[in-house]
Amino acid sequence: MPTHPDMTTELNSDLHSNQPPVPAADVTGPAVLEAMQHQVAVFARRAEQTRLGGVGQARNSMDRAAYLLLNRLDLEGPMGVKALAAGMGIDSSTVTRQVAPLVDSGLVKRTSHPEDGRAVVLQLSPRGASRLEQVRSSRRELMEMLTDGWSEEERTVFCALLTRFNVALYGVQNAGGITPAS
């Protein structure tokens, strides 16, 4: 099996060009799975180190948990803690803990359920929607910068494959193969 450059070490000059690293393109069979698991680990490290938080003033201004919670509330509308937790594949106590500072900072508001006044739903506040759009814009700019030189087709294919990978990972997690993290 060929040795692949360890992307966790100092970057070499080939990686600063618009050319992809050659060894990765030549990997097939079981070696591709080895390279893939390594690159996913490197990606996880780099994503956590940089927090993929965008560029400019909004860079790293919102942690991953807050971003994902606000994003889900924006895309799916008001919902209860249990529904939010189920949709994100985490437990209710984790959502409750993560939502508390968002409520305290005015990004999320607690309101009465429209059909059952006793139940509470979480809703993105106007301030939360504005803040989320700032962060999204910053993150879009980062994605544009990271994929500078990629064709639209390459961006689309990468996004489709990454989405497919995330959906498969979620499926394995929900089947009990992976224990969810808090």
Rank of each mutant, 00 (worst) to 15 (best):
H4E: 02
D6A: 07
M7I: 00
E10N: 06
L11M: 14
L11T: 13
N12D: 06
S13K: 15
D14I: 04
N18Y: 06
Q19F: 08
Q19C: 11
P21C: 04
P21T: 08
V22H: 13
V22L: 15
P23T: 04
A25H: 04
D26H: 10
V27A: 10
P30V: 00
V32R: 06
V32H: 00
E34F: 08
E34K: 12
H38G: 10
Q39K: 04
Q39E: 10
V40A: 03
A41F: 01
F43L: 12
A44L: 03
R45A: 04
R45V: 00
R46V: 03
R46K: 15
A47L: 05
T50N: 03
L52V: 09
G56E: 12
A58W: 05
R59D: 07
N60R: 07
D63M: 03
D63P: 05
D63Q: 11
Y67Q: 06
L69P: 15
L69T: 04
L69N: 05
D74C: 10
L75F: 09
L75Q: 15
L75N: 13
G77L: 02
M79R: 08
M79N: 05
G80F: 08
K82R: 05
L84Y: 11
A85V: 06
A86E: 11
A86H: 14
A86Q: 14
M88G: 06
D91P: 10
D91K: 11
S93M: 03
V95I: 09
R97F: 11
Q98P: 15
V99E: 13
V99N: 10
V99H: 02
P101A: 09
V103R: 14
V108Y: 15
T111E: 13
T111L: 13
H113P: 10
P114Y: 12
E115A: 06
G117I: 07
R118M: 00
A119N: 13
A119E: 05
V120N: 12
V120F: 05
L122K: 12
P126H: 09
P126G: 07
R127H: 14
A129E: 01
R131T: 02
L132E: 14
Q134A: 08
V135I: 11
V135M: 07
R136A: 07
S137C: 02
S137T: 06
S138A: 04
S138I: 00
S138C: 15
E141G: 10
E141F: 01
E141A: 07
M143H: 09
M145V: 03
D148Q: 14
G149F: 01
G149R: 01
W150F: 10
S151D: 03
S151T: 00
E152Q: 08
E152P: 03
E153C: 02
E153Y: 01
E154V: 14
T156A: 01
F158V: 04
C159P: 11
A160F: 02
L161C: 12
L162N: 13
L162D: 15
L162P: 14
L162M: 02
T163Q: 03
T163N: 14
R164K: 02
N166L: 11
V167N: 02
V167L: 00
A168N: 00
N174T: 02
N174L: 02
A175Q: 12
T179S: 10
A181V: 04
S182I: 03
